[in-house]
Simulated scan of single mutants.
Amino acid sequence: MNIYKWMVLAALALAVALPFTRQVVAGEFADTLDTPALHSNLAAQGPLTGLASAGERLVVVGQRGHILYSDDAGQRWQQAEVPVSSDLVAVHFPSASQGWAVGHDGVVLHSADAGTTWTRLFDGRQIGPRMLAHYQAMAAAEPQNEAIAALVAEAQRMTEEGADKPFLDVWFENERVGYVVGAFNLIFRTDDGGRSWTPWMERTENPGALNLYGLRAVGDDLYIVGEQGLVLKLDAASGRFKAVVTPYEGSYFGVIGKPGMALVYGLRGNLYRSLDRGANWHKVELGLPVSIVAATLDSAGRVVLLSQAGHVLVSTDDGASFAVQPQDTLAPASAVLASGDSLVLVGTRGVHLLPLQ
Rank of each mutant, 00 (worst) to 15 (best):
D31F: 08
L305F: 11
P207D: 05
N41D: 15
P94V: 08
V89E: 02
V181F: 03
G50P: 00
D221G: 04
A338V: 08
A137Y: 07
H134M: 08
G99I: 11
V59N: 09
V91I: 11
I292M: 09
S321D: 09
E81K: 14
Y252S: 09
A243V: 13
I187P: 00
L33G: 04
G257A: 03
L271M: 06
S111Y: 07
S86W: 02
F253I: 12
S321Y: 08
R302H: 12
S70H: 11
Y272K: 13
K283P: 06
R189M: 09
L88G: 00
T21R: 11
S86E: 03
T21G: 02
K165E: 14
A13N: 10
E56I: 10
L58R: 10
G310A: 09
L12Y: 10
D328Y: 07
W6V: 15
L151A: 08
V180D: 04
L353N: 06
F20P: 02
V25L: 07
L275P: 02
F122K: 06
G128L: 02
T246K: 07
Y179S: 01
V180C: 00
V180T: 07
L132E: 04
G194L: 00
V8C: 07
L354A: 09
L353Y: 04
V346G: 01
R64W: 09
F322P: 04
H39P: 00
I224L: 08
A37I: 05
I148H: 03
A153Y: 09
S111N: 08
Q357R: 14
G226F: 03
D328C: 04
L232P: 03
A112R: 12
V303S: 06
A147Q: 15
W77Y: 09
T246N: 15
N174R: 04
A335R: 01
F322M: 06
V244P: 04
F20R: 15
V218G: 05
R64K: 14
N145P: 03
D169K: 05
A15R: 13
E202F: 05
L42R: 14
A15S: 13
L18P: 01
L353P: 12
S238I: 11
A279C: 03
Y213F: 15
V89P: 06
E173H: 13
G269N: 03
S196K: 05
I187V: 12
N206C: 02
D123C: 00
R203P: 00
G239R: 09
L263K: 02
T116P: 01
G350W: 00
T198L: 10
H311D: 15
V102A: 04
F20S: 13
F241Q: 12
E146G: 00
G62A: 13
A137W: 02
L109H: 13
M201S: 10
V84N: 00
L38C: 08
T246H: 08
K5T: 14
M261K: 13
S238N: 13
Y69V: 08
A183G: 07
T296Y: 08
V264C: 00
V107L: 10
L343W: 02
N145F: 02
S95M: 05
A338F: 01
V244Q: 13
S238E: 14
L354S: 09
